[in-house]
Design a protein around this nucleic acid. Structure first.
Lengths: 251, 251
DNA sequence: TGTACATCAGTGAACGCGCGTTCACTGATGTAC
DNA sequence: TGTACATCAGTGAACGCGCGTTCACTGATGTAC
């Protein structure tokens, strides 16, 4: 803001404010079209039409269709990440297992409310589109929210240790153990976060399994693989969320 | 074949054989384009060009682009189903847990070898396309292959009963239990199959969880969510397949 | 075996559509002195 | 406060593309007697 080579004036000029406003408005309309008809239904010309501009004018705001799509992808990751983080934070007082399940529910709720945005980030890749690096950070928020739950639980002694329950758990060995160790180390140093305990590899691997299960189940629900069996999937989802939190070893 | 109102001659006429041949050739070319550039890259005109026909001629074989797509979807489901069934059958002599894991590996291998066909059936729905009833049967082959493993295992006493291992397993109750009961009953009567034992609801639910985990993990691998952590995912996959077979309760 | 007719496969032109992107331009808004 | 100039937003026309589908047509292949 007040840095030497920032905007010419400390406050945003009128032009800049209008520009930011219109950028937002264009993105909003694009999101509306995405929600209505999916990523393929997103057309620059249609967005321009709706915003009341000529199509070429959009190029003053987004250099190409892909850039607009990238903005939507980043927003979607951030919205979903925020939902997960919010659920975790809201459950601060309760047991770790509940926080984990709450994050799962928040993610599902968001996905059901925003199916096309979900499909955009977790469905088949958009053909011809290559996700830029800027999406990596926002995409990591959901997994990091789960890691946050794990760390808090580790700090509070809320992981594993029931003994009997561990009977059906397979040991993590070989190359998988190496990958998990490396990830655990990377998390410990790059994300100082609240908890200080490093996540043990076997817990991390079980968490990854739970994480993939979550998104597999949501995708199946959204993409129609449950028709005629577990539809509506609310009961299945609630059970699975709790079951997998238990599987991870959370109390 | 020899029924009264079948084809005019018992044997297919030359014309019919040519027609069947060309239908196959068109579908093959369509599959090639699908594999090369995904469902959106599939264009009737391009297929016609490659097959050496004028685009309108395709309409003698497939009434519309959607019908061609449907044919590809059915083939994909059948190919994947056959792969899963084959893996199960090949493991007949071994323990149930291995048969389950073998099916998982067969499915993943197929998905990695045919990513666009996988995306076609398990990725985000193709916009504007509505899957006809004819896809239901082929789509059921994979889940039914898993059910087959469960039934054989139940017949052979290869499910559950370890006691200690069941500690981390949550009971299946309420509406979920009802859905699972209904599905179990439907399976028992509509698919007589090899095993005679009905699948207990809690086993069925755990199997569904394992099933969704499998596809979640494959989708994450294929769609790039593991980059930088568990890539390559071979070790993770092998572990997860065995771990979830154990989770289901298979020996 | 031969002729008259019906069926079918494939052609080529056309319809109507929408798309992403570029480019030279006109005004309006801002900046410097 | 006023003028000269630079920056920027938005216009309108155009380029070049490919698509799915329809339709009247020409030949070739089959069928019936």
């Amino acid at each position: 803001m007040a840095s030497p080579n920032a905007a010419p004036r400390a406050a945003a000029t009128a032009r800049e404010r209008v520009r930011a406003e219109l950028s937002r408005e264009i993105k909003e309309e694009a999101r509306r079209q995405l929600a209505a008809s999916g990523a393929d239904g997103l057309s620059l010309r249609a967005v321009a039409r709706e915003v009341g501009m000529v199509s070429s004018a959009l190029y003053r705001y987004y250099p190409s269709r892909d850039d607009l799509l990238t903005a939507l992808i980043i927003d979607a990751y951030n919205a979903l990440g925020a939902a997960a983080e919010g659920a975790v934070a809201a459950g601060k007082a309760g047991p770790a297992r509940d926080r984990w399940a709450a994050a799962c529910h928040a993610i599902r709720d968001w996905a059901l409310a925003n199916p096309h945005e979900y499909a955009l980030i977790y469905g088949s890749p958009v053909p011809g589109y290559r996700a830029p690096e800027a999406t990596i950070g926002p995409a990591a928020r959901v997994p990091l929210a789960f890691v946050g739950v794990l760390r808090d639980a580790l700090d509070g002694g809320e992981v594993g240790g029931t003994g009997a329950a561990a009977g059906a758990l397979l040991p993590v060995t070989g190359p998988l153990a190496e990958q998990a160790d490396a990830l655990s180390a990377a998390l410990a140093q790059s994300v100082p976060g609240p908890g200080e305990a490093a996540v043990p590899p076997d817990v991390l691997v079980r968490a990854v399994i739970a994480w993939t299960q979550l998104f597999g189940m949501i995708s199946f629900e959204l993409f129609g693989q449950f028709v005629g069996s577990f539809e509506p999937a609310d009961a299945l989802f609630g059970h699975a969320a709790r079951q997998l939190a238990a599987f991870v070893g959370l109390h």
